[in-house]
Amino acid sequence: MWKGDYLFLLQNLVVKDFKIRYRNMSLGVFWSLLNPLVMMSALTFVFTAVFPNNQIENFPIFVLCGLVPFNFFTVAWQNGTISVANNAGLIKRVPVPREIVPIATVLSTCVHLGIQIGLLLVMVLVFGRGLNWNWLWLPVVWGVEILFVCGLTLMTSALDVYIRDVRYVVESACTLLFWMVPVFYAIHSVPQSYANIYQFNPLSALILALRTILIDGAAPSSTLLLKLTFSSTLVFALGLYVFHRLKRQFFDYL
């Protein structure tokens, strides 16, 4: 068994991923800001000029509250899914606990996420409601979301080792999710019978919570928080279990 320093290893792996990504970009961190701003502008144009009757106030902030979590989710999930297969060299030669590879990949996306959350908060301060005490809920809802993505990634990264098609399924699922989570529409436009199901999707729940906190300046409802925590914890536990079951045979399939 590997009896090392988990935190030190995790930190080194996260720093590695982050440095590799940004050292190869001439504008570095700027790209993290550019993508959500361009998407925000495009969606705002479509839903305020092309379809002008959406009745959503402050649409740019509204849509940015959807884009930032959605971007984080898709980038973390897709990179995480291929992380085990792509680190075959490491997995086949160093007896590190395998779980750490996908988790480190997800966490390295959090650096990128931090920059985008910074952008979102600045936009809210400048164009929106400004600071209020309910902002203290932000670390809670984001923490639960990261737990969710880690769980999902543990599952798909292990499956991807056995069947390389899993990464393409994940890619397609992400494209589909853009429409199936309320990124550019409000939850009250969704018929009531479907809206309850939306809250069980941790990504939708996070977007709803962000809007409540940042746009309405209120605390997220307790049922929403419960559903978010419940489904995230469940997915994480399931992810650990699946990964644990599958990791013994990784060596043979890499």
Binding site: L9, N12, L13, K16, V96
Partner: peptide, 21 residues
């Protein structure tokens, strides 16, 4: 096997040390 070409020698040493436990 744990080395990465884009990291410096120092970063690689620390990464490898943490991999080895």
């Amino acid at each position: 096997s744990g080395f990465h070409p884009d990291l410096t020698g120092r970063e690689n040493i620390l990464l490898n040390a943490s991999l080895l436990g």
